[in-house]
């Protein structure tokens, strides 16, 4: 598909994935011909069993994993093709939230949030911890927005609970000023109540700041409750793509296999 065709096809599309294929071992595709368009806002949930390629899909989008073939269009560029500083510039515009939070444990909450700006500021500023005032102001604002508050700024990341860490993770992603946020199983290491709070926070961030968020999640209930669109994957293919209400028992049986667990 040509670029102009893609752009006319989806004017409101932020992310366009075309014929994406990933093989870790030649001939054994984890992702088989994925085609998706992600709209300009809202929370999109990708559900599916473990090992079905959800995490690989999301990591292909910011090239933590290199796709085998296919195109990933974002802000006028094919992410699958860019290299070096071009790749870094695109990554700055895509925030990421992780299952294990992936904070730098021995740094303070403030420095973890400011890490979201590392792609923008010169290294000497990071070295001397001289972050621009605007960034610090914004970091404090985000600290409030994720429900932690200024008291947490100087606390070390390893002193926080799981839910608090994930809030810092979300603040770090938003700190990048992203055009898209990816979240890879952001609630899988959290208890049920905290999971709901984190999903609520991400849905609110997405709505209030107009940032589309793509969430990998295996909790179907959470996906249906917070996403405006659910993508069901199984065996490296998309088998359901639509509103949460349309997701019926037969779809879940197809995605996860069997029906006894439902």
């Amino acid at each position: 598909m040509t670029r102009s065709a893609l752009q006319t096809h989806a004017t409101a599309s932020v992310l366009g994935i075309r014929h994406l294929r990933k093989e870790y071992r030649a001939g054994v595709p984890v992702l088989k011909d994925i085609n998706l368009d992600i709209g300009a806002e809202g929370l999109t949930a990708i559900i599916g069993p473990s090992g079905t390629g959800k995490s690989t899909l999301i990591r292909c989008i910011n090239r933590l994993v290199d796709p085998t073939s296919g195109e990933i269009w974002f802000e006028g560029q094919d992410i699958a093709k860019v290299q070096g500083s071009g790749l870094r510039h695109i990554r700055r515009r895509i925030g990421m939230v992780f299952q294990e939070y992936n904070l730098v444990e021995r740094l303070s909450v403030m420095e973890n949030i400011l890490s979201g700006r590392l792609g923008y500021i010169p290294v000497w500023r990071a070295f001397l911890r001289k972050f621009p005032d605007a960034d610090i102001t914004r970091a404090f604002e985000l600290l409030d927005a994720v429900g932690l508050g200024a008291d947490f700024a100087t606390r070390r990341a390893d002193k926080l609970s799981g839910g608090q860490r994930q809030r810092v993770g979300i603040a770090r992603a938003i700190m990048q000023d992203p055009g898209l946020v990816l979240a890879d199983e952001p609630t899988s290491s959290l208890d049920p109540k905290t999971s709901v709070e984190i999903m609520e926070l991400m849905a609110e961030m997405s709505a209030r700041r107009g940032i589309p968020i793509v969430v990998n999640i295996h909790n179907v209930e959470l996906a249906k409750r917070f996403a405006h669109r659910v993508i069901g994957m199984t065996g490296g293919m998309v088998v359901y793509d639509g509103p949460p209400d349309g997701l019926g028992a037969h779809h879940l049986a197809e995605i996860y296999g069997g029906e006894d667990w439902q």
Partner: peptide, 28 residues
């Protein structure tokens, strides 16, 4: 590798990843 992956995903250059990802972990 988690924090390193996270900083890579922010688009940080290698020197910044070294400084804010590797160094804090290896400092002790």
């Amino acid at each position: 590798q988690g924090p390193i992956e996270a900083l890579t995903a922010t688009g940080a250059p290698r020197a910044a990843i070294l400084l804010k990802g590797y160094w804090p972990q290896a400092e002790p």
